[in-house]
Amino acid sequence: MRPRIAPLDLSSDLDRLARLYSAVFAEPPWNAGPDEMADFMRRLPTEARAGAGGFGAWSTDELIGFAYAVPTPTPFPAGRAYDRVAQVTDVDRLVGCWEVMELAVDPAQRGRGVASALLDALLDEYSPAWLLTATDAPAVQFYDRRSDFRRTGQGEGLVVYASTYPAASGV
């Protein structure tokens, strides 16, 4: 049974998002611990107020995946992974695009099309977009197979992708 994909209220679904984030990103290569979890919980309300939008994948009433994006501001941000992104790609082409901040699927639900459905919904609403992932993340193979994303940079332990949807002609 395919999950129901629906808009996600980043402000009111914090507990569900936190549980799923913890389950997904505690695994290698991220190995997120309490500090990363606290950072996620601090960032989410701020990102929601900054215009973030996203979608959840639901199996009955259980959140089994989520994806959300935020507008990339001018100037391009610094700190976190942004400094490394700036080392491997032309960030001027990313400013004004949507940054896919998270794409997370319950490990027990992987391989069932949940990530594809979430990313399709996200790109239909928030495009052009870009994202980054760790070079050793299983998601690299997923993004490399998609025809709507292309690598725009790699190095510093990460891979940067940008959408190639028609709206992304400048990306």
Score class of each variant (00 low, 15 high):
Leu8Asn: 05
Pro77Asp: 07
Leu10Thr: 03
Tyr21Phe: 07
Asp13Ala: 06
Pro7Ile: 01
Ala81Trp: 10
Arg43Leu: 08
Tyr21Ser: 14
Arg49Leu: 01
Arg19Thr: 13
Leu20Tyr: 13
Gln87Leu: 12
Leu17Ala: 00
Thr46Leu: 08
Asp120Ile: 07
Asp39Arg: 08
Asp92Leu: 07
Glu102His: 02
Cys97Pro: 10
Ser116Val: 10
Asp83His: 13
Val171Asp: 13
Leu119Phe: 11
Ala32Leu: 12
Glu125His: 15
Gln141Gly: 14
Asp120Ser: 05
Ala6Ser: 05
Tyr68Trp: 08
Trp130Asn: 14
Pro3Asp: 04
Asp61Ala: 03
Ala38Asp: 09
Asp124Pro: 05
Cys97Phe: 06
Glu156Trp: 00
Arg2Ile: 07
Asn31Cys: 04
Leu158Asn: 04
Ala86Val: 11
Pro3Val: 04
Phe66Ala: 00
Pro128Phe: 01
Thr133Ser: 00
Val24Trp: 08
Val85Leu: 12
Val140Asp: 00
Thr133Cys: 02
Trp30Ile: 08
Val70Thr: 07
Pro45Met: 00
Pro3Ala: 02
Ala104Met: 05
Leu8Lys: 11
Leu20Lys: 10
Asp106Ser: 09
Ala78Arg: 14
Ala129Leu: 10
Thr135Gln: 11
Asp120Arg: 02
Ala52Cys: 01
Ser11Arg: 14
Cys97Met: 13
Met41Leu: 08
Leu14Tyr: 15
Ala115Val: 15
Ala168Phe: 10
Val85Thr: 09
Ala137Tyr: 00
Pro138Leu: 09
Trp30Ser: 07
Tyr68Gln: 06
Asp148Val: 13
Ala117Met: 12
Arg146Ala: 07
Val24Lys: 06
Ala162His: 09
Arg49Tyr: 04
Asp92Cys: 06
Ser116Lys: 14
Tyr126Ala: 15
Pro107Phe: 05
Ser147Gly: 11
Trp58Glu: 02
Asp144Gln: 15
Val85Ile: 15
Pro45Ser: 02
Leu103Phe: 11
Thr133Ile: 01
Gly56Ala: 15
Thr46Glu: 09
Leu103Ala: 06
Val24Leu: 11
Thr60Leu: 08
Asp9Tyr: 05
Thr133Gly: 04
Arg146Val: 13
Pro71Ile: 11
Tyr161Met: 14
Phe149Thr: 11
Arg80Asn: 10
Ala108Asp: 11
Gly153Phe: 03
Val88Lys: 08
Phe55Arg: 10
Pro3Glu: 11
Ala78Gln: 07
Arg84Glu: 05
Tyr161Glu: 06
Ala121Tyr: 01
Leu131His: 03
Gly157Met: 11
Met41Glu: 12
Phe40Leu: 06
Phe66Met: 01
Asp144Arg: 06
Glu27Pro: 13
Tyr161Ile: 10
Ser12Glu: 09
Gly51Leu: 08
Arg93Thr: 07
Met1Phe: 13
Gly153Leu: 02
Asp124Glu: 15
Leu119Gly: 12
Arg19Phe: 14
Pro138Val: 12
Pro77Gly: 01
Arg84Phe: 12
Ala121Gly: 05
Gly79Tyr: 12
Ala18Glu: 15
Leu118Cys: 07
